[in-house]
Design a protein around this nucleic acid. Sequence first.
DNA 1: CGGTCAATACGATACGTATCGTCTCGGCGC
DNA 2: GCGCCGAGACGATACGTATCGTATTGACCG
Lengths: 209, 209
Amino acid sequence: MTISGASKELPPAAAGDPRRRNARAHEAILVATSELLTEVGYARLTIEGVAARAGVGKATVYRWWRSKAALAVEAMSRRFDSPLPAETGDLRQDLLDAVRRAIDGLARSPEGALIPALAADLMRDPTLAAQFREQILRPRRSRVIAILRKAIDRGELPANVDVDLLMDVYVGAVLYRVVVSGEPVDESLAEQLVSLLLDGKQPVIPSVD
Amino acid sequence: MTISGASKELPPAAAGDPRRRNARAHEAILVATSELLTEVGYARLTIEGVAARAGVGKATVYRWWRSKAALAVEAMSRRFDSPLPAETGDLRQDLLDAVRRAIDGLARSPEGALIPALAADLMRDPTLAAQFREQILRPRRSRVIAILRKAIDRGELPANVDVDLLMDVYVGAVLYRVVVSGEPVDESLAEQLVSLLLDGKQPVIPSVD
DNA sequence: CGGTCAATACGATACGTATCGTCTCGGCGC
DNA sequence: GCGCCGAGACGATACGTATCGTATTGACCG
C-alpha cells in the first residue's frame, strides 16, 4: 500500500497523527457513547445509535473502534476519572470509605448495571479485557492499595497481606449481591465486610436493638 | 403470590396441564437449549437455533418461554441438579469443599462463562431473576446453609452468623476474579478464603518455600 | 509566503446477513 | 373436528462492509 519511502506513519498519536484530523468526530462519538450508556445501558447501546447521536457515519465509528465493547471501555474510562478519596490515615476509616465507594459505584450508580453485560463481551476479547482492567480497574484499585500499604508500614497489617485478594473479597461480595443474589447492599454490609477483613469477625446478623 | 381466583397457572405442570400434549416438544426444546448453551454459550444462543435443533417451530418456543433468558434458566435448572456434597462433619473441610465446588462451577466449567451474559438479562426481568435464584441458586446454597447450621449447633460458629453474607463473600470473590479481574482462581484461593472466614486471618501471599 | 493538489477522513447511505418476535398456514394426533 | 403442531414468511432492527461525493489537511511548488 504505502510505497513512498519517507513517510512517518503508524506510531501512535505522534505529531502527524491521523487523529489530529479526527478530533471533532472522535470526541463527539465518545460523548454520545457516554450519554447513551447512562440513558439506555450497555445492552441497548448500538453503534448506529452512537453514530446518529454523534452526527457521524457508522463507518467512522468502526474505523476507530473494533466493537461496541471497545467503544464502551474508552467512554467509561473517561468518567471514572477521580473522585479523590479521603485518606484519614486511619485504616479502618479509610477502608470503610473504600467499601462505601465500591457500593456507590456498583449498586447506586447506573454504572453497576453495565458491568455484567460488558463483562460478558470482555470475556470474549482478552485484549480488550486487559485494557479495561488497566484503564478502569487499576486506577481505582491503586488508591486502595496505597491505603493498605501505608497500613502495612504502620504495622497495622502483616507485611505479606495479599492486597489484591483483600480487595477482591469486598468488591466481589458487593458485586455478587448486586448482580446475582439481589440481596440488599447497604451501610451495614460495608461495616460487616470491614469487620471481617480487619478484625477477623465473622459476619453476624445485625441485632435490631 | 397465591391468587385466590379461579385459574391455576404458573405452578409447574399439573395433571390437566396444557403441557400434556407438548411433552415431547417441551423436552426437546430444553435439551436443545442445554446442548447449545455448552456449545456456543449464552450470548450466541438463539431461539431460532434452539427451534431448529429441537425440530420445532419458533412459535412453539415462544409459546412457553417469554425470552431466551427464561429458556436458559429452565434449561440450566435441570443440570445443576445435585452433585451431592461430602459432609464430613468437619466444618473446615466441608466449607473448603463448598468453596472448591464454587470454583469448579464458576471457573472451570463452561457454566461460569454464561453467568455474566445471563445476569445482564436477568437484571431487566426481576421476575425471572427471582426464579433463577429460587431454582438454581437456592438449592446450591441450601446445602452450604445446612453445613453452617450444623456447625452452629456444635458451637463452632456464633449463633447469629449471617450465613448468607458468609456465602456471598466467598462466591463473590471467586466470581469477581473470573469475570472481572481475571486473576487466577486456584486451590490456594480456596484455602485463603476459608482461612479468612473461619480463622479471621487476613489473606497473605503464599510463600514459595 | 501563498496557492495547488493528492491523500484521506468525513457524513451519508445502500447493501446483504442475522435474529428478533409475530403471524399465518396445512397437517395430524387426540 | 378441534387445537396444537412444524414450518417458515414477514416486517423490524442492528450488524458490519462498501461506496458515494465532499471537506480538510499537510506537503510541495512556485
